[in-house]
Design a binder for these strands. Structure first.
Lengths: 345, 345
DNA sequence: GTTCATTAGTGAACCGGTTCACTAGATTTC
DNA sequence: GAAATCTAGTGAACCGGTTCACTAATGAAC
């Protein structure tokens, strides 16, 4: 990199003080009573010298970086095959452009929570969008340090933290209602981490709705599974049993895709032998076979809202809403069908 | 945000000059002949005051941000349903952690190339990974400004620019050889942008290999298509014709997925009526039906290499290799089958 | 012909660090 | 015992901007 022209160079060239250059280039000429002639001269000089202000200098002086960080649970979040991540990032980036903030990816292999907190609060970013489990200590720590954060796709345990989320409980209920109305009576739930309030809400929404219909789901039919599938055996055993469920509610599309594959491997048919409902309803649902019925959350919109909310918090305004909770919708595709007790022919 | 403790606060508390604090905390105590006692006192004081250096101050003083930007063609890159983007980002982030650099997403709605260049060269990042068409003026401009860049997943037109890419021509050849060996004789190529050297290489590798086998591909059978599919009609018309191709080579998985859907919609079967080969071989290939045969490039590895290369360029070292070109591999899945002239039953 | 207001612009401090050149005292060398 | 070296540490400049408080010159008011 060659040495860049500084504000001082421009000032010298234009024959004014660098203060004046600063005011003019920041559009505060009128307010400071800088004459039109001087303004023009400065603008011309700056242009001819190809001057662009050094952003780091500005950051230090203004104590603002105009940058936000996106913090996921970990780097393996990027390993998912659904388009959840890209859609989140698209929303963040789009709104970031609107709000004039840059987006930084924070995926440090967090040796410690302290390290993460120090990193974020070290002045490099003005705020952070956080996708972490509800009780994550990082959230609490940052709140104590008064560092601006917005939790998204996760309703935090800690009170007083702004967040953007889907009504996951209703999402679980939608899935249950759909499967019940198709005549299903034996269910299994593939649940996510019990640390995630969101995954838990989905599960509970489903379970309670089924119970309200007078049915029971044996505890053995509630299985915890992540992508990449940790222990497919439990699901396999369950699906091989005599009273195997005829319908599965899976906490995420990504895991649902893998369940389809697994069920197919067992020689069962979806949806003839078993109906499957996923969660997220990303475009990938249309590409799998059979296309996956899934509870949709408006990922990009949610990400945009979270970003806007964060910029408001950063600017010291209390946002209009401290929480935004989106209602989910059910996208019915081909992976669910009416219950039939006819065996696969 | 509360006012944070500065290096001056620590110095005062410890009863030393702030210079001393700086040296000690940067591990240069020995080198500067600071006594062990003083060192320890400073370290203890810093810890007890919860001091973490202000990164922006460090950036300004050292003239280094230890941050790199990732620049895609545009924000719509994030709209793809294959896991290309997350895998790229995973590679970049993983290697970023190793190299100690932060990762910034640059997706400004580039009003002008100048604006992009100014943004990147404004001192906020030390270098950039660029995924742009070969002839993109941004690449040329940044090179002229001596701004450190590495092009990845694209072989730039401009000479002297380090890049990491796949041997796309060979990739096209692999696809052709596979389909030829299956007995196919009538092909179509779904090509990407003619501005992309990479997409063009893939196409040419395929076409030339087919020609070398003594076969011709009518120009009408080479169709340009992006995701989301711009004009599916041409492909539809082609597939409805009497001499419809029995094998398709598609420049990207994402578009290939959509081709499968489209072909299915026409009532044709994959691979019985038509074999399809994609490019990238992302994990999503296993989830679609039929699983997509695809030319694999090691996306995450490539991203990691590009990142490491960029940090070397940033640090003024000429990297060991100015270009890294990975050999592609063919992952045969179920979307390709031997040619048969039996109609679908 | 003072006083007051306006216009046009600047000096110096500040943001929070890093680093070079230098010093004061203690010890070693010859 | 004077010079040289070593030890432990610091002052001041610098990175590139922003902003407050102030000034000097001009014109208007009474």
């Amino acid at each position: 990199m060659v040495r860049r022209t500084t504000i001082g160079d421009v000032a010298k060239q234009a024959g004014v003080g660098k203060v004046t250059v600063s005011y003019v280039l920041n559009g505060r000429a009128r307010e400071r009573g800088i004459s039109a002639a001087t303004s023009q001269k400065i603008i011309d000089t700056a242009k001819s010298m190809n001057y662009t202000p050094n952003v780091v200098g500005q950051m230090l002086a203004t104590q603002k970086t105009n940058t936000i960080a996106v913090v996921f649970q970990g780097v393996d979040y990027f390993a998912s095959t659904s388009s959840f991540i890209p859609e989140v990032l698209r929303g963040v980036c789009e709104e970031g452009v609107v709000q004039g903030v840059d987006v930084m990816l924070h995926t440090k292999a967090a040796e410690s929570m302290e390290a993460d907190a120090n990193y974020l609060a070290s002045g490099r970013v003005d705020g952070a969008l956080i996708l972490r489990d509800a009780g994550d200590p990082l959230i609490k720590e940052l709140k104590e340090r008064r560092f601006p954060i917005v939790s998204f796709f996760s309703r935090p345990e800690e009170p007083g933290i702004p967040y953007v989320d889907t009504d996951n409980y209703s999402g679980g209920r939608l899935a249950a209602q759909h499967l019940l109305s198709l005549g299903h009576r034996r269910f299994a739930v593939i649940a996510g981490s019990e640390l995630s309030v969101d995954a838990t809400d989905r599960k509970n929404g489903f379970l309670n709705t089924v119970r309200a219909a007078g049915l029971e789901i044996p505890t053995g039919n509630v299985i915890k599974m992540f992508a990449p599938l940790n222990e497919p055996e439990r699901l396999k055993r369950l699906m091989a049993g005599p009273d195997r469920p005829t319908a599965l509610f899976v906490w995420s599309d990504d895991v649902a895709f893998q369940c389809i594959t697994l069920v197919h491997q067992m020689g069962l048919s979806v949806p003839k032998d078993v109906s499957i409902v996923g969660f997220d309803s990303t475009p990938a649902c249309d590409r799998v076979s059979p296309p996956l019925t899934s509870v949709r959350q408006p990922i990009t919109t949610m990400a945009r809202n979270a970003t806007r909310m964060l910029t408001e918090v950063m600017r010291g305004r209390t946002p209009d809403l401290e929480q935004i909770v989106f209602p989910p919708q059910l996208d019915v595709r081909a992976s669910t069908a009416p219950y039939s007790n006819l065996p696969t022919q």
